[in-house]
Nucleic acid binder design. Sequence first.
DNA 1: ATGCTCACG
DNA 2: ACGTACGTGAGCATC
Length: 880
Amino acid sequence: MEKLILIDGNSIAYRAFFALPLLSNSSGLHTNAVFGFTTMLLKLIEEQKPTHFLVAFDAGKATFRHEGYKEYKGGREKTPPELSEQFPLIKELIQSFSINQYELAGYEADDIIGTMTRMADERGLDVIVVSGDKDMLQLASDRVTIALTRKGISEVDLYTPQAIQDKYGLVPKQIIDLKGLMGDASDNIPGIPGVGEKTALKLLHQYSSVEEVLAKADEITGKMQEKIKQHADDARMSKELATIFREVPMELQLDELSYNGYEGPTLGAMFRKLEFKSLLEKMDLSGGEPAVETSIEVEIVGRESLAALTDAFTGVTAVHIEVIGENPHVSEIIGLAFSTAEGANRFVPAELLHIPEAGRLRDWLADDNAPKIVYDMHRTEVGLHWKGVPLRGVSFDVLIAAYLLDPTESTHTLSELAGRYKLPVIALDENVYGKGAKFKVPEADVLSKHLARKADLLRRLVPVLQDELDNNEMHRLYYELEFPLARVLASMEKQGIRANADGLKQLGGELGQTIEKLVDGIYKAAGSEFNLNSPKQLGEILFDKLGLPVVKKTKTGYSTDAEVLEKLAPYNEVVSSILIYRQLAKLQSTYVEGLLKEIRGETGKVHTYYQQTIAATGRLSSQFPNLQNIPVRLEEGRKIRKVFVASEPDWLILAADYSQIELRVLAHISGDEKLKEAFRNDMDVHTKTAMDVFGVSEADVDANMRRQAKAVNFGIVYGISDYGLSQNLNITRKEAAQFIEQYFAVFQGVRHYMDDIVRQARTNGYVTTLLQRRRYLPEINASNFNLRSFAERTAMNSPIQGSAADIIKLAMVQLAERMAKEKVRSRMLLQVHDELVFEVPQDELELMKQLVPEVMESALALDVPLKVDVNYGDNWYEAK
DNA sequence: ATGCTCACG
DNA sequence: ACGTACGTGAGCATC
């Protein structure tokens, strides 16, 4: 069976461009549209297996349509330069795929495609037309299917004549009539004013064509009749403009479009040029330049030579210990590889680590004076810990350096770092181990080489990364903050925090009963039973069955989030029950059941894992379980905190949190006098903001004024926009804009900071925190409003959030040192962005109550004081 | 795998 | 006109 694919090149390029974030390669060339185009081509080739293929493009500006109607496609936004520059690349890409492309002066891609479908139809070929433009539907026939891109570009909807009938109740030819009546703003086709899709469809279902509608206009009632008569000519012309011309005088014959697939090396070369690394690896496009691994020498160490192994480790040795599994607290170690300063590589199978002959190796791993280079010390240390092997003496962690050099990169795998720093290629773990259910540890010959390559790469990366850190003035950030912090985190996690399982179970039982009653009531009120956890089913009940007004939609259907439900509560009592159900169900599934699963039977403790190299701002994140989002705002949820207790009898939980750290940081970096004054006088900053913005005395600030001022302060920290503030305060955008203006009139230093930081981002391409942590913002100069605005808000927020992260991390490192020096038994257990949680013996309470805030407050000297509140009790709930 | 919802700072 | 507040992780349903 022969099959022809016809692609509307311009349309797909546009879709791809707007669907994907602005990727760019190392020379700054944007490639997102090219990338989207590539994935679409790959998918079509694989899934459709075309025998014939053509990509058609619009040629030049003027087409025959402009002869009759000069304003055709007028008023359209100019093509963004970031997209224009990609068209030559897209054309080159198509060539690399060995796919035919065609354009003809005076005609649009539609017309070329229309003509081709006619020819193919006559010849009996099956055709798929790929476009983002609904006009194409007019071409559908028994042999011609139209694939329209859905949201994004990876998904398409297929339209056969039947599908068009089902969706619009029209035959394909009537799509032109539809356009004739409703017009098309994007092509500047007028149609009949006031006629949208709904009306146009109604008219066509009755009269079948534009001509009939115009002829029978007298039958139509009301204002519509007048409009139709008045704009009859517009409708006729619109229909004509929307009609795809299917007789383009082309030289091109069908036979010339035959497609025999692409040549791997040619496509590979193009992907390398575009720096599509993930595709290169996934598709294994060898040939051309060698993107393959070079050979490597590695000695597989056996039982007999194990004892002498460490004799070779005289200088700084690179060690890679492969810890398998996402959670290092429950992981397997499958092998160890070593690369000496002289470049000799050794591999030790994991099972040898525990035999007596490995004694010297274990000592070496634990030796503070045996310098080691590793990838992800924190994870490795935790993984080894549960196998009873300590890790000490690490002198450099490649992962942390890579993260600091660009915290926005989604991953910093060794394979990716090799590419990023132009070092010898190594395979993806996925390709060596397989993934998901297919995961399998390979034989020693394969595994030893893979891990030796990693160790070898570590050694080569260190000087490069050290240079880069120095260039970026990140020496202090690395050596005084992030690197020592990794050990502090590992120690906190190994320690774990005790969670009372019985308490949780009791809480769960109570919740279960309340939830059961709620659910019964909700089903009764709804008149049927359904899955309350399904937003889809809930939406059908609320909006279709009960007929409540639709407030907000998601891309897949009705929105039923809390904001929507609050608005619906006055219409139907069941809605407030649903809100309560949601709240309790969350507590039950995430916090009661979820937490219970994470408690270790032997110790009754949970051991979270802090990710140090994920958040773009420099914050930590917490997993397995996440202990940074334990409920606190509502009393019902807050009770969960009662189960977090000290792990020794009579010890206490002590919590210390920074008061308003982000606004204090803002006061410092903006230098705003008013804001500094507020903190120097230790005022309530939201009240002070209300006083200044509303121009009233402290006594006259009511609760509502303070609430609004608080929202403005939050907004300022987030990178304010009138829209965001208006949503938060439920006020109009204009009012929000006025608030912001009043705020800036008072806090002029803050306004200057906001302007200046965005300017800095534009000039440098990045913004920095107090300790020189960097965040790159490539989209700060984008022509797309949304992308650019997002980057601007990020530029305002990141230095604030990131500097606050710098400060608490610094405090953690200093506290760990002080606590060791003072030889306290107290332990640091948790960090929650602006809060540290400890367990302390009674006899150290007074010391810790004094020491903790002292260190936290003096971690970094600012122009305003830092303030820390300390609380303690038998559990985390009481420590408030 | 992806989207929705919701917990935290 | 556009449509978003900044940063995360987990559970569940659905595809």
